[in-house]
C-alpha cells in the first residue's frame, strides 16, 4: 500500500474515535491521500487553499481551543515556507499541532528543484520544542500514528508518500523516542533515516560476505535523537556512517555529529552534498546525487576504513 493511503486510513480511524482530531490542507489533500476523507468527515477536514502560513496559524488557534489538528503539504511548504509560523504560532505558543510534509528530498521527482526539500529537517530541527519523525515503511507508520496522536506537542512528520519496501515485520514494537536496531554488527554503525533504510540493510547483508560486520540503526526520530542508542552503538563499533535523503548539513548527519562530538569517533556522511535538487525520476536522481545502492555500499566500505 502507498504510505499516504496507510496514513489516511490511520487519520480516518483517529477522526472517527475523536471528534477533536482534524486535518487542514493547503490545496494538496489529493497529494496527501486525504481528499476522500472530506466527504466522510465534513466537520473535521478543512481546506485552507494555497495559504500554508494561514493554515499553520489556524491550526495553532484550533489547538488552543482543544482540537488536535494535523496540517499537510509538500515538505518545502510544510517547513521552510512556514518556518516562522511553526516557530511562533505553533512551538513557541506550545500548541499541539502535527505537521506532515510529503515528498521529502529526491522523492519529489518530477516536481523538481522548487519542491525538493533538502533542508526541511535542518529548518525544523533548529526550532526549540519540535519533534521530527520520518517513517521508513508502512508497518512503522501505522505503529507511529497513534503514538503521535497521543504525544501532546508539535511534531513534524516527513512522509514518503508512495510504496516503500518493507523494513519491519509484524512483531515490530514502536517507541517514538527510541531508535530501532535493524542489524547487529561490530565494524561500523550506519545510522539511517527514511527511504534508504532498506538499501542500507541489504548492503550490510551483502557486505557480510566480505567479512564486514555492519550494525544498522534506523533513526526514525531525528529530534530528539536517541542519544543513548547512538552513543552506545558508536562506542561499540568505533566508526559511524550516516545515510539520509537530506542535505548533509542540518539533518541526520548533523544530529549524529552533535551527539558524538565528544566521542572521538569518525563520522562519515552519505546524503545530499549541499546542493539543490532537480527534476527527474528516482533512478536518475539517485545517480545524479550519488545516492544509489552502489554508492551506499562504497560509502560503507570507506567509512569502515576510517577506524
Amino acid at each position: 500500500m502507498e504510505m499516504r493511503a496507510a496514513y489516511a486510513e490511520c487519520l480516518a480511524k483517529m477522526m472517527e474515535e475523536d471528534k477533536h482530531v482534524c486535518v487542514l490542507d493547503a490545496d494538496l489533500a489529493k497529494a496527501s491521500g486525504t481528499r476522500k476523507l472530506y466527504e466522510r468527515f465534513p466537520k473535521q477536514m478543512f481546506d485552507c487553499g494555497v495559504a500554508e502560513q494561514d493554515m499553520a496559524s489556524i491550526a495553532a488557534g484550533l489547538a488552543s481551543y482543544g482540537f488536535k489538528p494535523w496540517i499537510e503539504s509538500f515538505t518545502p511548504f510544510a517547513t521552510r515556507r512556514i518556518c516562522d509560523q511553526i516557530a511562533i504560532s505553533i512551538s513557541y505558543a506550545k500548541q499541539n499541532v502535527k505537521i506532515v510534509g510529503t515528498d521529502p528530498g529526491i522523492s519529489a521527482e518530477l516536481n523538481g528543484g522548487t519542491h525538493m526539500s533538502m533542508e526541511d529537517i535542518g529548518v525544523v530541527r533548529s526550532i526549540p520544542g519540535m519533534v521530527i519523525f520520518e517513517p521508513v515503511d508502512e508497518t512503522q507508520l501505522r505503529a507511529a500514528m497513534p503514538a503521535l496522536d497521543e504525544y501532546v506537542g508539535p511534531v513534524y512528520m516527513r512522509l514518503f508518500r508512495k510504496v516503500t519496501p518493507d523494513v519491519f515485520g509484524p512483531d515490530y514494537k514502536f517507541d517514538l523516542f527510541k531508535a530501532d536496531l535493524l542489524r547487529e554488527g561490530k565494524d561500523l554503525t550506519v545510522f539511517v533515516s527514511g527511504m534508504f533504510t532498506r538499501d542500507v540493510l541489504d548492503a550490510a547483508n551483502e557486505l557480510a560476505a566480505e567479512g564486514l560486520n555492519v550494525e544498522v540503526i534506523n533513526v526514525h526520530t531525528i529530534k530528539p535523537i536517541d542519544r543513548e542508542t547512538v552513543i552506545a552503538s558508536a562506542r561499540k563499533t568505533g566508526a559511524v556512517l550516516t545515510v539520509e535523503n537530506h542535505n548533509v548539513i542540518g539533518g541526520l548527519h548533523s544530529a549524529v555529529c552533535e551527539t558524538l562530538a565528544l566521542e572521538r569517533i569518525p563520522v562519515s556522511a552519505l546524503g545530499v552534498a549541499d546542493r539543490f535538487g532537480e527534476v527527474g525520476k528516482l533512478p536518475y536522481l539517485r545517480k545524479a546525487l550519488g545516492l544509489t545502492k552502489e554508492d551506499i555500499v562504497e560509502a560503507i566500505r570507506k567509512a569502515a576504513a576510517t577506524k
Binding site: 499553520a56 484550533l62 509560523q85 504560532s89
Partner: peptide, 25 residues
Amino acid sequence: IDMTAGSLGQGFSCAAGIALGSKLE
C-alpha cells in the same frame, strides 16, 4: 491572554482558527 502574538499577521490567523473551533463546538 488568549493567544501568543508578536510575529505580525499570525495572531489574526490564530483567531480565525479559534473562531472555527468555537463554531465547531
